[in-house]
Design a protein around this nucleic acid. Structure first.
Length: 307
DNA sequence: CGAAAGACCTGAGTGC
DNA sequence: TGCACTCAGGTCTTTC
């Protein structure tokens, strides 16, 4: 289940491979992966074929490749999406839904990097690809993280990403706004953390880990948190996201891998997610898994109590 | 506007 | 061995 660190690993992996490349061909193997594509602006293939890729940008769990047409290829991995870079003609990965043939032959990168396949793989089809129009950011700052890339496109955000809040690793993230938004929320803090319009990039795993780090129960009303608690939670989120990023993301199985098909190592560092029945590293109590919002919530019943 | 529920998906795992 | 069932969860849509 890719969250911010996993998506950033993918972004960083594709950026050097796709920047400057020409889309030479588009192969749609499963139309369901285009569910978020609005055909009113033209078909997916026609808007992509012959276009040049300008970079790779990420906000939260959304990834997009700005194109020289002024639009962007928006990629969301959903639950099981993968972006795999392959040499043309290589054996098919399972569950390839869309394949892009990229031509890098005009780049000064040597003949071995001339052509490339970008396979969008997605077992459960919660992810998607789409061509989307761009909007200028409201604050005029860069729309997301683009690595070393920059250009006039940097301050534009795809229309279907515009409602998503900035993520905690974004230099333009507003802690003040987070305090204000949480102060108005009566719902449980975990629900707020998972709401991508409050802050983005957090999914079930990192929400549970950050709440454990701050000794907060998932149903603690967001508005009941003190300013210091919100600040602490934000610090914990940033620390955990950054550590996961350094370790290449969290992998439990073959569902999350980088662009070369390799797993990350952060699963070894998890404190509560998937650790039900095992002792809390802080107090020794037995960790539990409870059902909340139709997903598992992992916590220490002794450290994390409602107040 | 916020909250909650349903829909969308497939493969792994479980019980009989 | 096979069948029915449950579970995993990110985001969008609908309803209140």
């Amino acid at each position: 289940m890719p969250e911010l660190p996993e998506v950033e690993v993918v972004r960083a992996g594709v950026e050097p491979a796709v920047t400057g490349a020409l889309v030479a061909g588009v192969e749609i193997l499963d139309e369901r992966s285009l569910r978020r594509h609005d055909p009113a602006g033209g078909s997916f293939s026609s808007q992509l074929t012959g276009r040049r890729v300008l970079g790779a940008v990420r906000r939260g769990k959304f990834l997009w490749l700005p194109l020289d047409s002024g639009k962007a290829l928006v990629i969301h991995l959903g639950m099981s999406g993968q972006v795999l870079l392959r040499t043309p003609g290589s054996a098919d990965d399972r569950h390839v839904r869309i394949r892009l043939a990229l031509d890098r032959s005009t780049l000064e990168t040597g003949p071995e990097h001339g052509e490339l396949w970008l396979n969008f793989v997605d077992q459960r089809i919660f992810g998607s690809m789409a061509i989307d129009t761009m909007l200028p950011t409201l604050d005029g700052r860069d729309a997301g993280y683009a690595g070393s890339g920059t250009g006039p496109w940097a301050a534009n955000v795809p229309s279907q990403v515009a409602h998503i809040a900035r993520d905690p690793l974004d230099p333009a993230f507003s802690a003040e706004r987070l305090h204000a938004v949480l102060g108005r929320r009566a719902s449980g803090i975990k629900r707020a953390l998972l709401d991508q319009t409050v802050l983005s990039g957090i999914g079930n795993i990192y929400a549970d880990e950050a709440l454990f780090a701050q000794r907060l129960h998932y149903e603690q009303p967001a508005a009941s948190l003190s300013g210091e608690q919100v600040s602490g939670l934000l610090r914990a989120l940033r620390t955990i996201l950054h550590r996961a990023l350094v370790e290449g993301g969290t992998s439990f199985d073959a569902q999350y891998v980088n662009v070369n098909g390799q797993s990350g190592y952060f699963a070894h560092s998890l404190e509560v997610y998937g650790k039900q029945g095992r002792p809390c590293s802080r107090c020794g109590a037995t960790l539990v898994r409870e059902s909340f919002m139709n997903r598992g919530s992992h916590l220490c019943p002794s450290c994390q109590v409602l107040s």
